[in-house]
Amino acid sequence: MASSTSALPPSSVPIFTTVASYREWRRKAFDERKSVGFVATMGALHDGHLSLVRRSLEANDLTVLSIFVNPAQFAPHEDLATYPRTLPRDLELLCAQSVSLDVDSSGRNERVFRTPSAVFLPSVSEMYPAGISQDVSEQKGTFIEVKGYGHQLEGRTRPTFFRGVATIVTKLFNAIEPTRTYFGQKDIQQALLLRRMVRDLLLSHPSPESLHIVPTVRDAVTSLALSSRNAYLTQRERELAAPTLYSALQAGREAWAAGRSKDECIRAACALIAQTTERLNLGSTEKVDVRVDYIEMNDPESFDVLSQTINRAEWEAVEEGQARPVILSGAMWVGRTRLIDNIILGDQGKLGIMS
């Protein structure tokens, strides 16, 4: 049964705070042969999260969303204490989601109306019975690492991040047992790494094929990739500086399409950020601090960095002209806010990104 904790905000969607209570609900879904879609979040929901929920509602009988701010994926100096926590608003947004669609039931077409089915809202002690420290050297218990695939890109700046992600997502998959699960393209390395983990660990719920990657949702005006951490941005940062990262990646894509080398593509992206920042701050009394963490191009299979001199024609020739995709991604600081984004160069369908 759902938790009866009086401290929880009101919700029309059942809330489960323990693995045991959720599993009782899940057994019934198994018995009724109902499919379960799953969206894992850390809360502070925005339309990027909700787009994943809607995808799940369209494809599954039942949809579960988890909210858990995972200490193991925050380094000691990172923003665990200040990460946005907006549970009442999250539940309000989630309860408002619905889809209406035609389904084939017993040989006849029926119109069905689906809404989210459950929220999994565990405590830290529920997910880490042995306790948890942000300092990896002090951690005790069982942790998951995906060797050789977590030190590039985001892992270069945040070396313990993917260990924490792989561990918590494995726990969530074991608890939720989803038929299908949905992750956003904004965190492309995370999504691809988790699909590899599911395959390597021989998981059935979900299978690698049922871990779906959904395109990044962007602000309609600025094209800024939606993120819970965007709440840290000032209005000036959000409107003028933050969208620069996506513009820079587009400049890199244009250079790649024009036959430029990888090094020239990165230079074009970085130059656009520098020029835009200089223009924003010229004569302004309200300076915007913009710092590039990285702009890089990587193989989506190995995450290895492409060679500096390779160009599009040479890259595609590696697989006999099959338009092998490339991840063009970047991270940058705007004030105190670290933003990430990416563009897939080539056929993103080959990475299992939904259309």
Rank of each mutant, 00 (worst) to 15 (best):
M1L: 11
S3K: 01
S4K: 09
S4E: 13
A7H: 14
L8R: 03
P10I: 14
P10G: 13
S12E: 13
P14L: 08
V19K: 13
S21T: 04
R23N: 15
R23G: 12
E24T: 15
W25Y: 11
A29P: 00
D31V: 14
K34Q: 15
V36R: 03
S51K: 05
S51H: 10
L52H: 03
L52T: 02
S56H: 04
S56L: 09
L57Y: 09
E58F: 12
N60E: 10
I67N: 09
A72N: 09
F74D: 09
L80Q: 06
P84Q: 03
R85C: 02
L87V: 04
R89V: 03
C95A: 15
A96H: 10
S98E: 14
S98P: 00
S100L: 04
D104K: 12
G107N: 12
N109F: 07
V112S: 07
V112G: 04
F113K: 11
R114E: 01
S117K: 11
A118V: 04
S125N: 14
S125H: 12
P129C: 03
D135A: 11
V136R: 09
S137V: 14
E138F: 07
I144G: 08
H151I: 15
Q152S: 13
G155I: 00
R158F: 02
V165D: 00
I168Y: 06
T170N: 08
K171L: 13
K171A: 05
F173K: 04
T181A: 15
G184C: 06
Q185N: 04
I188C: 07
L192R: 03
M197Y: 01
V198S: 12
D200M: 07
L203E: 05
E209C: 09
E209Q: 14
S210P: 01
S210C: 05
S210A: 12
R218Y: 08
R218W: 05
D219I: 01
A220L: 10
S223P: 06
R238D: 08
Y246C: 01
G252I: 09
R253G: 08
A258T: 11
A258Q: 07
K262N: 13
I273V: 13
L280M: 11
R291I: 10
D293L: 05
P300S: 07
Q308T: 12
I310H: 10
R312F: 03
A313Q: 10
A317C: 03
G321I: 05
Q322K: 09
I327L: 06
I327M: 02
M332G: 03
V334R: 01
I340N: 00
L351D: 07
G352S: 05
M354T: 15
